[in-house]
Lab assay of single mutants.
Amino acid sequence: HMTFVALYDYVASGETDLSFKKGERLQIVNNTEGDWWLAHSLTTGRTGYIPSNYVAPSD
């Protein structure tokens, strides 16, 4: 899985979304859904959809 880092805080707007904090590391499970990607937080262990423009590839 690709690892990304959150650029901003995001508060989930629905049950399927994943809240995260700036700097949180996320594994992308599925990024074929356009602007919303299914991600797994390496910080909280939770999985949900995130806005793709809130994250950047982590080196």
Rank of each mutant, 00 (worst) to 15 (best):
D9A: 04
D17F: 13
S41R: 02
F4V: 15
S41H: 13
K22A: 12
V29Y: 11
F20D: 00
E33Q: 14
S41N: 10
T16P: 05
D9L: 01
F4H: 07
D17Q: 15
T47Q: 09
G14R: 15
G48H: 03
F4W: 13
I50E: 00
S13K: 14
Y49V: 06
L38P: 02
T43S: 12
T32H: 10
V11W: 10
V29D: 05
K22T: 07
F20H: 01
K21A: 10
A6D: 00
Q27M: 15
Y49A: 03
K21R: 13
S19Y: 03
G48D: 01
G14F: 10
T16V: 11
V5Q: 06
G34E: 11
T16S: 13
R46T: 07
H1K: 13
A56K: 11
T44G: 04
F20C: 05
V29E: 06
N30C: 12
N30H: 09
T44F: 02
D35R: 07
G14I: 09
T16Q: 14
Y54T: 06
Y10Q: 01
L18R: 01
D35Y: 14
G34P: 15
G48N: 01
I28N: 04
T32P: 09
L42W: 06
N30K: 09
R46H: 09
T44N: 06
F4T: 05
E24W: 02
K22G: 03
R25N: 08
S58I: 15
R46I: 07
V55I: 07
P51C: 06
H40V: 15
G34A: 13
L7V: 07
N53F: 09
L42P: 09
Y8I: 07
P57Y: 08
D17Y: 13
A6L: 03
W37H: 03
G34T: 14
A39W: 01
T32F: 10
V55E: 01
G48A: 04
R25F: 15
G48Y: 02
R46E: 10
R46K: 14
S13M: 14
Y10L: 03
L26S: 00
W36R: 10
G45N: 08
Y8G: 05
Y49N: 05
S19K: 03
L42H: 06
K21H: 11
L7E: 05
F4R: 05
G34R: 12
D59K: 11
I28W: 02
Y49E: 03
A39E: 00
Y54A: 14
I28H: 01
G34Y: 08
N30S: 14
D35F: 14
N31Y: 14
A6M: 06
T32Y: 09
I50T: 01
F4C: 11
V11S: 10
H40G: 04
S52Y: 08
K22Q: 08
P57F: 09
S52F: 08
Y10R: 05
L7D: 03
E15V: 11
G23D: 05
T32C: 13
G23K: 02
N30Y: 08
G48W: 01
S13T: 15
Q27V: 15
V11C: 12
D59A: 13
V29N: 05
Y8F: 12
E24S: 02
L38G: 01
D17L: 09
D9V: 01
H1L: 12
D17V: 06
S13Q: 15
T32Q: 14
L42M: 10
W37K: 04
L7H: 03
V5S: 04
T16E: 12
P51L: 04
E15C: 11
G14M: 09
E24P: 00
L26F: 15
T3C: 11
K22D: 01
L26Y: 01
L26K: 00
L38F: 11
G45K: 06
D17R: 10
S52I: 06
G14C: 15
V29Q: 07
M2Y: 08
P51R: 05
Y8N: 06
Q27Y: 14
T32M: 12
V5R: 04
K22N: 03
T47C: 12
D59S: 12
T44D: 04
W37D: 01
Y54K: 06
T32W: 09
L7W: 03
G14Q: 11
S58Y: 14
T3M: 13
W36V: 06
S58N: 09
G23L: 03
N31A: 14
I28V: 10
V29A: 07
L26Q: 00
K22S: 06
R46A: 11
A39C: 06
V29S: 06
I28E: 00
F4N: 02
D35K: 10
G45H: 15
M2P: 15
A56L: 09
K21S: 11
D35N: 11
T32R: 08
S13N: 11
M2C: 15
S19H: 04
L38D: 01
V55K: 01
G45R: 06
G23Q: 02
L7N: 04
K21E: 08
E15Y: 09
V55C: 05
G34N: 12
T3L: 14
F20P: 00
P51K: 05
S41Y: 01
L38H: 04
I50H: 00
F4K: 03
W36Q: 06
G45M: 06
F4G: 04
V29R: 07
L18T: 04
V5D: 05
D17G: 13
S19P: 06
S52E: 04
L7G: 03
T16H: 15
V11A: 10
F4A: 07
T43A: 12
A6T: 07
T43W: 09
F4I: 05
L18D: 01
N31K: 15
D9F: 02
N31H: 12
P57V: 10
V55S: 02
G14L: 10
P51N: 05
T47F: 09
S19T: 09
K22I: 07
P51I: 02
A56I: 14
I50N: 00
A56N: 06
Y10I: 02
L38Y: 11
R46S: 07
P57N: 07
L18C: 04
L42R: 04
I50L: 04
T32K: 11
L38Q: 04
V11N: 12
Y49G: 02
Q27E: 12
R46G: 09
W36A: 04
V29L: 15
H1T: 11
D59I: 13
K21T: 09
T3P: 06
P51A: 02
G34D: 12
K21G: 06
T32S: 13
F20G: 00
Y54E: 01
